[in-house]
Amino acid sequence: MKKMMILVLAVLMTMGVFAGCAAEKPVTEEPAAELSGYEALVERGYVIVGLDDTFAPLGFRTTDGELVGFDVDLAKEVFARLDLEVRFQPIDWSMKETELNSGNIDMIWNGYTITPEREEKVAFSTPYLKNRQVIVVLPESGITTKADLAGKNVACQSESSAYAAIVADEAFTAALDGGAPIAFDTNNEAFMDLEAGRVNALVADEIMAMYYIGEKGVENYIVLDEDFGKEEYGIGFRKGDSELVQKVNETLDAMKEDGAAAKVSTVYFGKDIVNK
């Protein structure tokens, strides 16, 4: 009896600590929050940008290990203008909001799609890039519309806005083989599964899908006219860091005005696709 009591107590305590993790969502109560006033950041002298360095072309590494990408270059320019040192912290994409809320990073800046669910958790900058959730198929598949995908397999990246977009279309999801999309760790894996013929289509950010297709050869894929909706990328901050959000917004606006943003866009996309 006593043994059982100890056991149950131990389980409850363990669960309690974990529940604490889940429950403590209000960002303002974070210990890091008091540090995150803009003055505090200036005092500290640097900001930490969280990114998944497997996200080509937005944030990735050259063979020399140098961190580059559209988002990376944009962030460097923004904080150069704000006279703050910028440090990049690689994170696992599935942990991004947790990293932000625990104060390990000051922002998520890495093709971070603005969604209503995320808006509840983080404070977004004004959108800086338009994106679409595109459907990619192989040319020989004969698939031309969303309707053709009924009873078929569709892949996407887990924890991504693509996944959210598919699942939001309940009728479409229900018609899928297995009643759910197949989620992979990275888009790369989703593409490889498409090539292996185990999935019939994949849904991904247009920005990333076009990078992949560009690398692999445009003739090998078809991007359907139909899509899973337009969306926009924003930079995610902790709620309560409003002054930081404002400063970044102002700086980005200035960069759009003077053509600095367009320049970065041209390097990675060959043209200016930054939101006007």
Binding site: T54, D92, N188, Y212
Partner: peptide, 23 residues
Amino acid sequence: VYILGLSELLRAAKIAANRDVTL
């Protein structure tokens, strides 16, 4: 350790795989 964003061997390889679109 990838879950904490540390680029150990496998993650370093994944970064390259995603960049160069190859296995």
